[in-house]
Design a protein around this nucleic acid. Sequence first.
DNA 1: AGGTGAGTCTACAACGTTGTAGGATGGGCG
DNA 2: CGCCCATCCTACAACGTTGTAGACTCACCT
Lengths: 338, 338
Amino acid sequence: MAATLKDVALVAGVSIKTVSNVINDYEHIRAETKQRVMDAISELGYSPNLSARSLRSGRTGVIGLAVPELSLSYFAELADSIIKAAERRGLKVLIEQTGGDRDHELEILSSPRLQMTDGLLFSPLGMSNEDAHHLRVNFPLVLLGERIFGGPTDHVTMSNVESARAATAHLLSKGRRRIAVVGGHRGEVIGSAGLRLRGYQQALEEANIPFDPDLVAYTTFWHRSNGATSMRELLETGVEFDAMFGMNDTLALGAMRVLQEAGRRIPDDVAVIGFDDLDEGRYSLPTLSTIDPGRDEIADTAVRVLQERISGRDADLPPRELEARFEVIERESSALPG
Amino acid sequence: MAATLKDVALVAGVSIKTVSNVINDYEHIRAETKQRVMDAISELGYSPNLSARSLRSGRTGVIGLAVPELSLSYFAELADSIIKAAERRGLKVLIEQTGGDRDHELEILSSPRLQMTDGLLFSPLGMSNEDAHHLRVNFPLVLLGERIFGGPTDHVTMSNVESARAATAHLLSKGRRRIAVVGGHRGEVIGSAGLRLRGYQQALEEANIPFDPDLVAYTTFWHRSNGATSMRELLETGVEFDAMFGMNDTLALGAMRVLQEAGRRIPDDVAVIGFDDLDEGRYSLPTLSTIDPGRDEIADTAVRVLQERISGRDADLPPRELEARFEVIERESSALPG
DNA sequence: AGGTGAGTCTACAACGTTGTAGGATGGGCG
DNA sequence: CGCCCATCCTACAACGTTGTAGACTCACCT
């Protein structure tokens, strides 16, 4: 069916290897020969068989990306950024969804399913720090997210503690003192929830405000519905608060909706800030203040680091922890005279 | 590095081909031999080299999915559904982003970049019906979306006209008579915008209400910001309306936000319905009525049809047009006494 | 004149797999 | 008893590519 090197060689009247050399920009080829080969290539519409090439070279030019679910906006936007970053480096991306399920995540690490890829960008959700040893695999792996620290691989992450502290400080700077938090995970220390809670506490400490556990709402997931439910529960307890920190934008949006139903004005009665800088927060009512966690930088760094590991040039480098720069973005939900 | 058939054969004391036969469930193998081979496989942690296999077989087990952008929620959720559908059929998905750009779309069809895939699910945005001939390619291709009809390939789509008619009829059933539309594309006949506008007009006709061109707001894209801008323009013209049909949920949400800023109550002053059934509309304020376009069904059908074409069994079947079932979902934004 | 080296090209093997053809064994049947 | 066929296994070639080694030419230097 499709033309091969052999066909091109026949048409151009040269050896197979010469055609291969032309394709791979080998230096020492006469201009005339090169031209003949090029003509034959376009005449036959030849294009290299990537399976054969990757069998020979051991490289596929494809990287895997394992995320919980694309229907979670954060991961959709992350995947978007990563695909673009990969494209800039000549790589394709094969996406795998784990559903945030630990077993599914472990399976992806152990099983040979994700062959056809040169390496993996892995964003676990179900795994915890005790599973770190499972990351010791025999293929290039770059870890994303906040579930595991100090693992055996490169890790690209956001500054969770610092940025959560900045988010909280932002609310404090607006004169708020009773700041509710939505999205905690009970008993979690490491993980986005644990780290962001720590940042929240640090900010309170710096402002000499005692930490009130009643202000923390716990959820299992970080969907919109969890934000809504948590806020409903929080309101039922009758605890007072004049601000809210949503551990991600989706939670914040869900919670904001319930607050408004309950008649609280935002930001007047309750100032709100989220985390992630989703596009959605730009058009919510009110628009949502948030933390821009540096998604493009994360994507770009992750792909670059993975490609370096794939190339094998830095095989002996120890695992690196890389943090992206963040930024506080003030929008209507916290726009108050400072 | 990794174990090969040869290594396994050596350990098991059989020929390479016998190992291959075991792996491929060939019938005539003695139970004892089979066991020995299996033992050797797990001892060595052997797993087949997919590049070699696909070089031999011509199949990769990977399908391509080309969409405009994953940061558009609709496509993120579509990709989610498609990856799940593909997984059920033992296929992996490689995602390519076109940015909705016609040139980029044509490039994907013509260039050999997306080798390593057995076929392509293609959701164009920049191409139009005149580009249909570009779809005549020499690899299995299934078309998604509403940009091109009657092309040379299988096409899985939603019932745009019927469901837009149903959405409009829903607003009419609530007693509304002046229904604004947000998201029109000037001069478009085919394409989501054109088709949905036609459905809107059909519903009006059935209700004997004259079509008022002033009620149609045109946009170039279907982002949140376009919905917001369109609604702002609409309000400036001073045209009166008591309902709004957003051609997709994102537009509707953007527009809803502007309506509320302008002091219009939803649904009291303006009843709103969108299109797509994004998760987001479940937690907006108010929750957004919408059309569920049957995304899972679309994904499942598309993957199934593509796989059939890949298998080659139905090579001589003419191109099929397949439409998913839709459903009107009433939420708060249009909840009125019927 | 002979040797050296750069430039240009080719033959061959190898990557790991599976299809094809066929060899060896043993049971059933005429 | 000899033949045939099913069962079980193997050797070999092929998929399309690239690395290795080397052949050949020609200019240049000693």
